[in-house]
Write a protein that binds this DNA or RNA. Structure first.
Length: 332
DNA sequence: GCGACAG
DNA sequence: ATCTTGTCGC
């Protein structure tokens, strides 16, 4: 009865999934249940978790699930667990949780067994909460199954209940001024399903924050903003970076053009230099350099330039004069 | 046939 | 979700 990780689930499966979502939905706790959520400075909040799943390009059944815990408000990683997993369900919009959530629950359980003292007081989840076709996105699903406060943070607007990424929506985005600015996402039903959040001053694309479990929308938005050193909140960003890094290091990307080129370069070059140091025209690369400034951040910002609008200012022709706020820092 | 489509 | 180019600045 094991589902293939690729291919569309049958209509019967989708009906079962819908019933499961409806059943679990009754267990969502709305509103703030923790003392720190009521405090203007989040006093008492010490640990914020983030989860993410990264995928193997050529393989539709393997992925890496990561859970990280960060100190608050410092946002330093104090726990990480990355695990290679075998996917059992395909991605279907509206049913993301059935693909990812089993592994996320397992990561939380492992943490509670090994390091219960590091259990996060709130979890930021890549995806939506109640901003969902049936009001039960992955952040609600994970929240109910773990009973941890959860916040849904999506990078794209899920167009449900009349919400549309149309010109009016884009106007509202452009009207956002400073980091922390928001506008409500009101469905046809008249309910506010979530908030669009400008996560920092120079971010073009907003985040779409919605409630998962045991937290109010206002607190969810304010906390998400407090977690943003760059566009993506640090807990999710660290989980993303670490899960991708795990895949890159263990599986590489066999077969990809870039990997093939990298491999042939690697084979032609001697791995050790027994005598003369680095070969003929080999300037000593970086000898005593400290950790170079977040290389990962640059990758994220390029991704934004891809799925975002081409951002007409992305030229380098305006040399010399001014360096206002480079458009490519959007994801930093 | 066409548009939509969290991750 | 995944891949991808090249460039500036410290």
């Amino acid at each position: 009865m094991a589902l293939k990780a690729a291919g569309r689930p049958s209509a019967e499966t989708l009906l079962l999934w819908e019933r499961e979502q409806a059943r679990l939905r009754t267990r969502v706790l709305h509103g703030d249940t923790e003392a720190w959520q009521r405090d203007a400075a989040f006093s008492g909040l010490r640990r914020v978790g983030g989860v993410d799943v990264s995928f193997v390009r050529g393989d539709d059944s393997r992925a890496c699930a990561s859970l990280v815990v960060l100190s608050f408000p410092e946002l330093q990683v104090v726990y990480e667990d990355s695990h290679l997993v075998r996917l059992k369900a395909p991605y279907v919009s509206g049913f993301l949780a059935f693909r990812e959530v089993p592994f996320l629950v397992e990561l939380v359980q492992r943490l509670q067994e090994k390091e219960p003292g590091l259990t996060p007081q709130v979890l930021l989840v890549d995806g939506n909460g109640v901003l969902h076709q049936r009001g039960f996105g992955v952040a609600c699903h994970l929240g109910v199954l773990t009973d941890l406060p959860c916040i849904g943070v999506a990078k794209k607007l899920l167009q449900v209940d009349g919400l549309e990424n149309n010109s009016l929506h884009k106007e509202k985005i452009m009207s956002l001024q400073a980091g922390g600015d928001t506008f409500p996402l009101m469905g046809n039903s008249g309910t506010v399903l979530g908030m669009a959040l400008k996560s920092h001053d120079h971010s073009t694309k907003p985040l779409y924050v919605s409630v998962g479990h045991r937290i109010s929308l206002e607190v969810a938005v304010r906390l998400t903003h407090h977690c943003c050193r760059f566009r993506i909140p640090e807990p999710i960003r660290q989980a993303d970076i670490r899960s991708r890094e795990y895949i890159r290091r263990t599986l590489g990307t066999p077969g990809s053009p870039a990997q093939m080129r990298a491999r042939s370069r690697e084979e032609q070059r001697p791995k050790a230099y027994p005598k003369g140091g680095p070969g003929p025209a080999g300037p000593p690369k970086d000898s005593g350099r400290g950790p170079s400034p977040d290389l990962e951040d640059l990758q994220l910002c390029f991704q934004e330039q891809q799925d975002g609008q081409p951002e007409g200012t992305g030229h380098h022709e305006d040399s010399g004069l001014r360096t206002p706020s480079p458009p490519w820092e959007d994801d930093l």
